[in-house]
Write a protein that binds this DNA or RNA. Structure first.
Length: 510
RNA sequence: GGCCCCUUGGUCAAGCGGUUAAGACACCGGCCUUUCACGCCGGUAACAGGGGUUCGAGUCCCCUAGGGGUCACCA
């Protein structure tokens, strides 16, 4: 009983949850990375912990400022916020690895002093040959450890003499390294398969495996939640923790997101970065919702989630172990859901990224724009759909849908029907939804035709299209003047084309 | 190739020894309707294969196959 009590108290005093998202700024924020960030964020928020953003920019060749900026922007757009990071600092900074070189140096030296690491002078060419030979002999390549036994003094002297050297970790030749993964369980790696891997490059910069360990430990990270591709590297990192005599963080490796052909996501699969999804017209809420569903499950059949509702439910043991193929159709469906329920103002903000929409704003009031968006948002799946559907409210009707023409403008009595529509719209005093509909239905009854017979040509005349929101809504918003104008324009068009059609018929008869 | 992870419909995914094997997207019907979309109703479709363990296996173990990852002075 007492021990139980103690154990519980122990739990309460458990370490603060500190997780991190640590992208390397060598490209855009991919949806895979975005999901990793999301899971870290959810975990931090669920457990009252902190999310740390760290830039792993130790690859001098490929890291860029633009990329770093793009990644931060992507996260902000998604609404994933962090508590410490390169842009806002924090007690464990700096938060870009390129600024932590002295820290790595410190531990590198400690490892060297303790004999847990050693200088290696083998050139890349030597290594390449060694590797080629091993492969040719049919064996697996493993660094031979040629420099392993160089005396400390000898090595030091050579370094002082200016010979390029890397630093390698002295890895155990036997035994097993255990990685306890929160998602996958215990995973064993045979030490005999690992070689003395490089922890510092010849330019003095740390390699990835070394820098992560130093940073995760010195930043007091409690849980390392990252993509599955890092699982195979984890035993090397564990070896470093052990060499430094540090306590291990918890590990959780999230499965990968695959392209529809089950291969790794790449440019040839279309949009893969959050920036591209934004450009295609997806909303951050939709992308977040979709990403959360891809790899995590609430256990219920709910598909639509606000992140504030998943926070209290999020847990690592509900995270899937198997790789997931992403499905644009479902993302799009979710997006349609969010668009149809979004505030018009928010949608307009995204729409305004288009120059075409900006142009509308110079001729029409904001209120009118918002009213149009409100009217059409229920039918759109993507932001461009919205723009397309809004166009005839701001631009003249420049043509008529071909199928619509065939169906509605080609019939004998179409001019008559349109004329009737014209009369209704010009005569109706109130010009409201109710009054227009009532008047038009009366008219149809009077003419002994279906209301639809009046509505379809009217829709084509007012919008140029065969589908639109309810035609009376459209008419009201467009206003009487524009409606009448467009009907007359359609009447003229029909007249003109009737002559041409007649001529065609005539020439065919010839 | 070695090592590691994974394997329920086309896709996501519930299931955690006993179920008619959920649900969603997509697809196909139907309803609603002024068109389209929404919504509603219904349908097609899955436990990779083979061995065990067990009274009983999608669930546990082994093997095979397939997919993915990793073996860099990339991260």
């Amino acid at each position: 009983m007492e021990t139980m009590q103690l154990a519980i108290q122990g739990d309460c005093r458990m370490k603060q949850v500190r997780v991190r998202f640590a992208p390397s700024p060598t490209g855009a924020l991919h949806i895979g990375g975005a999901r990793t960030a999301l899971f870290n964020w959810l975990y931090a928020r669920r457990n009252g912990g902190s999310l740390i953003l760290r830039l792993e920019d130790t690859d001098n060749q490929r890291s860029t400022q633009e990329s770093a900026h793009g990644i931060l922007e992507g996260l902000r757009w998604l609404g994933i916020d962090w508590d410490e990071g390169p842009d806002r600092g924090g007690p464990f900074g700096p938060y870009r690895q390129s600024q932590r070189l002295d820290i790595y140096q410190l531990y590198l030296q400690a490892l060297l002093d303790a004999g847990a690491a050693y200088y290696c002078f083998c050139s890349p060419q030597d290594l390449a040959e060694e590797k080629a030979r091993a492969l040719k002999a049919g064996g697996d390549y493993k660094y031979s450890g040629r420099c392993r036994c160089l005396g400390k003094e000898v090595a030091l002297q050579r370094v002082r003499d200016g010979y390029p050297a890397v630093i390698r970790l002295r890895a155990p030749a036997s035994g097993v390294t255990l990685v306890n993964d929160l998602i996958r369980g215990a995973v064993e790696f045979d030490n005999s398969l690992m070689d003395d891997f490089i922890i510092a490059k010849s330019d003095g910069w740390p390699t990835y495996n070394f820098a992560v360990v130093i940073d995760d430990h010195t930043m007091d990270i409690s849980h390392v939640i990252r993509a599955e591709e890092h699982l195979s590297n984890t035993p090397r990192q564990v070896l470093i923790y052990q060499a430094l005599n540090w306590e291990l963080p918890q590990f959780a490796h999230v499965s990968m997101i695959l392209a529809p052909d089950r291969s790794k996501l790449s440019k040839r699969h279309g949009a893969t970065s959050v920036q591209e999804f934004r450009d295609l017209g997806y909303l951050p809420q939709a992308l977040l919702n979709y990403l959360a569903l891809l790899g995590w499950s609430s256990g219920t059949d709910q598909e639509l989630w606000d992140m504030k509702d998943v926070i209290p439910l999020f847990s690592l043991d509900q995270v899937s172990r198997s790789a997931a193929v992403y499905d644009l159709d479902k993302l799009t469906w979710i997006n349609g859901h969010y668009i149809s329920r979004a505030e018009p103002g928010m949608l307009l903000e995204e729409m305004l990224r288009s120059e075409r929409v900006q142009a509308w704003l110079s001729d029409f009031t904001m209120d009118y724009l918002l009213a149009v968006v409100e009217l059409i948002k229920g039918r759109a799946k993507l932001i461009p759909d919205l723009i397309d559907a809004a166009a005839y409210f701001f631009e003249p009707v420049s043509g008529y849908d071909a199928k619509g023409v065939k169906k509605h403008f080609a019939r004998e009595d179409c001019a008559e029907l349109l004329q009737a529509g014209l009369e209704v719209l010009s005569a109706d005093q109130d010009f409201t939804l109710q009054s227009l509909e009532a008047a038009l239905r009366d008219k149809a009854a009077l003419m002994n035709v279906k209301a639809a017979d009046l509505i379809h040509p009217l829709r084509l005349a007012l919008t140029g299209r065969t589908n639109s929101p309810g035609i009376f809504e459209v008419a009201v918003l467009l206003g009487r003047e524009k409606c009448l104008e467009r009907i007359k324009q359609a009447l003229e068009w029909i007249e003109a084309n009737r002559i041409i059609n007649a001529a065609n018929t005539y020439s065919q008869l010839q």
